[in-house]
Nucleic acid binder design. Structure first.
Lengths: 338, 338
DNA sequence: TTGAAAGCGTTACCAG
DNA sequence: CTGGTAACGCTTTCAA
C-alpha cells in the first residue's frame, strides 16, 4: 500500500536519486522538468517519504525526548508544551514520557528513547538509574536535567531556585506575624524538597523562630496522600496558623482540607504554595504562590540540548538557575489586592 | 560510538543472526552457551538495538499518534495520560501532538506522523484537512476520531454525549428556578459546541422558556477571550442569573469575572460547567459540572485503534458515545452538600 | 543449532 | 544535470 521512492521514480521516469534530490532540495540541483515530473508523481501516488529509512541512512532522528513525572501537573504540562513549541520551530519533534516518579518506568522510557535514537534528552530525574544515564552520556547522548540533579551524573542542568523561593515565601508569612508555620513538603530526599526545606529553615532562623520537626510533613504525588498529610498538620494542637506548601499537587490536599474543615483563609489559615497555577488567581480566596516561569525553564533546557547537538557548545556541564517570584494574593494577605 | 549488532556478534564470536535471535527470543532457539556469550557481549558494549533499523525491516513501529488541541486542558491531558498507560501495557508507545485547534498545525502533525509510519492515529480533529485524512485512510492508516466527527471522513469515532450532558445541566438550572440562563459555548460550528447548544435549547424548550440569542456567546481557547465573552454576558441588562459554560477553559473566564465583580455563587450567579476538573471539588464554592470519564474515552479510542491494527476488527466504522454525569455542587445548589 | 545473505526505503557518492 | 549503486542496522529465509 505504502509507496516507495522507487515507485515515484518509475512513474516520473527518473532515477530514485533524482527523487531524493527534489524531496530534499539538494544536495544537488535538479532540472525544472525533472522536478515537475517528480512532484507530479508524488501527488499521483500520495507518496509520503519514510522517516524511518531516512533516519537509518542519515543517522539523524530530529527527535528529542522529554521525561517528566506527570503530565497532569500543570507546571510540567506547561514545560512540555513550551518545549514542544520551541523545538518545532527548529524542526525537531518531542516525545514526552511520564515516569510517574517511578525509577522502573523511568528506566523503561530511557531504554526506549535510547533505542529510538533520540538526539537529545531532557529529563526530570527520579534520582535513580544513574548507571544507565552514565553509559548513555558516555555513548554520546546529549542530556539536560531539569528541576533536579542526579548524584554523580555530570550533565547540563536547569534548576529552580528553590531555596530562594521558599525563603521569600516563608519570610512573607513571618512578616504577617505568623510564628507557627507548617511545611507540607516534597520528599526532602530530592533536590527540590531539600531546597524548599532549607529556604524554610533559613527564613525561620533569620526571624529567630525555632524550627519544629512536628510542623513538617513530606509526601508526594497522590491526591489522597496529600490530603492526609495536610490533615495531619492541621490536627496539631495548637494548629499552625500558616502553611507553606511545596507544590501545586500537594496544595490540592490542603485546599481540600481547608474546605472540608471550613477554615477561612487567610484568617484561620494562611496558605502559600510553591508553583503558581492558573486557577489560583481566581480562587476564593486567590492563592499566594511562588511562581516559576516554566517557559523560561523549557527554553533553557531546549537551548542546552540543541547547542550540544549542533556542536555550538561542547564544554563542561552548564548550570542554569531559574529565579522564583512571590505572587502575594488573598490566601495570605487578605483582601489587600484583587 | 553506537554499537551495532555486528559488533556484538563479533565480540561474542557468533553470527549476527544469532544475536538477533537472543534479543528477540526467537523465532528460533539459541543454545544456552551462545545466548550467554551474546548477553555478555551486549553488556560489554552497552549495545542498544536500533528501533529504526528494526522498523525498517519489520514494517512495524509500535507507535500510535495522538493529536489533541491542547495538552494544557486538564481533560485532554487526562485522556493523553490514560491512553499512554493503556498503550504501554500493550507495548505501544504514544506520540502526543498539540494542534492548538489550528488546521495548519494539525496538517503538519498529520504529515509528520504519517512519515513516521505510526500504526494508528487518534485524532481530535479541527474539522479541516479532510482530504489528507481521506488519503491516509485509503492508504490503510487506522484512524479513530475523538470528541468530534469530520464531515465526509468515515472512521471509528468516540464521542461524548454532549446533547444529553448539556440538557441535564440546563434542566438542573431550570429546576432551581432560573429562567435567564446564559450559555458560554464553544464554537457551534464544531460538533461539541453544536451538541451542547442543542441540549441547552431542548432543555429550555421542554421547560417552556423562550430561547434568546442574546444569552449565547461563543468562543474558544484563550483566557482573555473567554474572560471578555463572560463579561459580555454578565453586562446584559438584566443579567443572566445562571450560566452554563461549555468547557473548563471557558469557565476560567467566568470564574475570573465572578471574582472581579464580586458575584457570589450561586446567589448572584449560578454556574455549571461542562467538563469536570479536579479543583472544582474544593473551589469556593465548589463548582457544579458535567463530568465525562476521560479514561473511558481513552480506553474506547485505544481499543478501536488496536483492534484495527490487530485485525481483530475490520468492518464498518464504529461509533461509541461516552455518557456524561452531572455533578451537582455549591455553585448551583448552594451549601446543600459539602 | 548455526551462518550467509537478501532485502527494508533512504541518501549520497561516483561515473557518465 | 543524471542514473546506478553501495551502504545504514536489522530480521528472517535458506542451506548447511
Amino acid at each position: 500500500m505504502a509507496m516507495t521512492r522507487d515507485d515515484v521514480a518509475k512513474l516520473a521516469g527518473v532515477s530514485s536519486a533524482t527523487v531524493s534530490y527534489v524531496i530534499n532540495n539538494g544536495p544537488r540541483p535538479v532540472s525544472e522538468g525533472a522536478r515537475r515530473k517528480v512532484l507530479w508523481a508524488i501527488e499521483q501516488l500520495n507518496y509520503s517519504p519514510s522517516t524511518i529509512a531516512r533516519s537509518l541512512k542519515t543517522k539523524r532522528t530530529h527527535t528529542i525526548g522529554l521525561i517528566i513525572s506527570d503530565i497532569l501537573d500543570p507546571f510540567l504540562a506547561f514545560i512540555a508544551k513550551s518545549a514542544e513549541d520551541l523545538l518545532l520551530a527548529q524542526e525537531y519533534s518531542l516525545t514526552v514520557c511520564n515516569s510517574r516518579e517511578l525509577p522502573e518506568r523511568e528506566l523503561g522510557w530511557l531504554r526506549m528513547l535510547r533505542q529510538r535514537r533520540v538526539e537529545g534528552l531532557i529529563l526530570l530525574p527520579t534520582g535513580a538509574n544513574q548507571s544507565l544515564l552514565l553509559t548513555m552520556i558516555e555513548a554520546g547522548q546529549h542530556l539536560t536535567l531539569i528541576d533536579r540533579c542526579v548524584e554523580g551524573v555530570e550533565a547540563d542542568c536547569v534548576l529552580i531556585d528553590n531555596e530562594q523561593g521558599a525563603y521569600e515565601a516563608v519570610q512573607h508569612l513571618l512578616a504577617l506575624g505568623h510564628r507557627r508555620i507548617g511545611l507540607l513538603n516534597l520528599p526532602s530526599s530530592l533536590a527540590p524538597g531539600q531546597g524548599r526545606l532549607e529556604g524554610y529553615q533559613r527564613a525561620l532562623r533569620d526571624a529567630g523562630v525555632p524550627f519544629s520537626g512536628q510542623l513538617v510533613q513530606e509526601g508526594s504525588l497522590t491526591a489522597e496522600e496529600s490530603y492526609a498529610l495536610a490533615g495531619g498538620l492541621l490536627d496539631l494542637r495548637p494548629p499552625p496558623t500558616a502553611l507553606f506548601v511545596a507544590s501545586n499537587r500537594l496544595a490540592e490536599g490542603v485546599l481540600c482540607q481547608a474546605k472540608v474543615r471550613g477554615l477561612r483563609m487567610p484568617d484561620d489559615l494562611a496558605v502559600c504554595v510553591f508553583d503558581d497555577v492558573s486557577y489560583y488567581r481566581f480562587f476564593e480566596p486567590s492563592v499566594t504562590a511562588v511562581s516559576v516561569d516554566g517557559g523560561e525553564l523549557a527554553e533553557r533546557a531546549v537551548q542546552f540540548v540543541i547547542e550540544r547537538i549542533d556542536g555550538a557548545y561542547s564544554g563542561e556541564p552548564r548550570l542554569a538557575r531559574i529565579p522564583c517570584q512571590l505572587q502575594v494574593r488573598e490566601s495570605t494577605a487578605g483582601r489587600i489586592q484583587a
